[in-house]
């Protein structure tokens, strides 16, 4: 399932570390960015590439929360609901997104475009409320801004 480029990238990254295992997180990151989520198959693929037992890769992968372990929509909307964002209305923002996307948090839209989840503090507290969509940060959010962003993503898709 991993593309040639992904494999090459993983190998390139892995080569830098003094010990092979250190390549686990970089490899998971590459795999997740290519596939959109992680699963057992990817763990064994990575295991072969970096020559680390698959279980160690699965153990690490399930420890970290940034990588979805099941398929998600094309855009993974991660809204921070930690304190600084919450003080500035993260909850109502989440409610608004649920309404607009017609899904509950944790769900994916039927067109497989959006998945909505909440996350812990993303280090964007002074520009709260905020969300991250795939790798990109969206800060100082308002409802209007959210409308724009979703619109833009829809047209881009």
């Amino acid at each position: 399932m991993l593309a040639e480029e992904s494999i090459a990238l993983i190998k390139e990254k892995a080569a830098k570390y003094p010990e092979r295992k250190s390549a686990i997180l970089p490899a998971l990151t590459v795999a997740y960015r290519q596939v959109g989520h992680l699963n057992d198959e990817l763990y064994s693929e990575i295991s072969e590439i970096i020559r680390v037992p698959a279980v160690e890769i699965a153990e690490a992968a399930t420890f970290y929360t940034m990588f979805p372990k099941h398929p998600v929509g094309k855009y993974l909307i991660q809204v921070c609901h930690n304190i600084s964002c919450a003080l500035l209305g993260a909850d109502s923002l989440i409610g608004y997104l649920e309404e607009k996307l017609e899904i509950k948090k944790g769900e994916t839209t039927s067109d497989n475009l959006f998945t909505l989840v909440t996350v812990e503090c993303l280090g964007s507290c002074c520009t709260a409320p905020m969300m991250q969509i795939n790798q990109d940060y969206y800060e100082n959010l308002t409802r209007e801004r959210v409308d724009e962003i979703l619109e833009e993503l829809r047209t881009r898709a």
Binding site: K16, Y17, S22, L25, P26, L28, T29, A60, A61, F63, Y64, T65, M66, F67, V119, E120, C121
Partner: peptide, 12 residues
Amino acid sequence: LDMIVHTGGGAY
């Protein structure tokens, strides 16, 4: 001196 940029996976 060499340097490696390593990224985490989401864990405080």
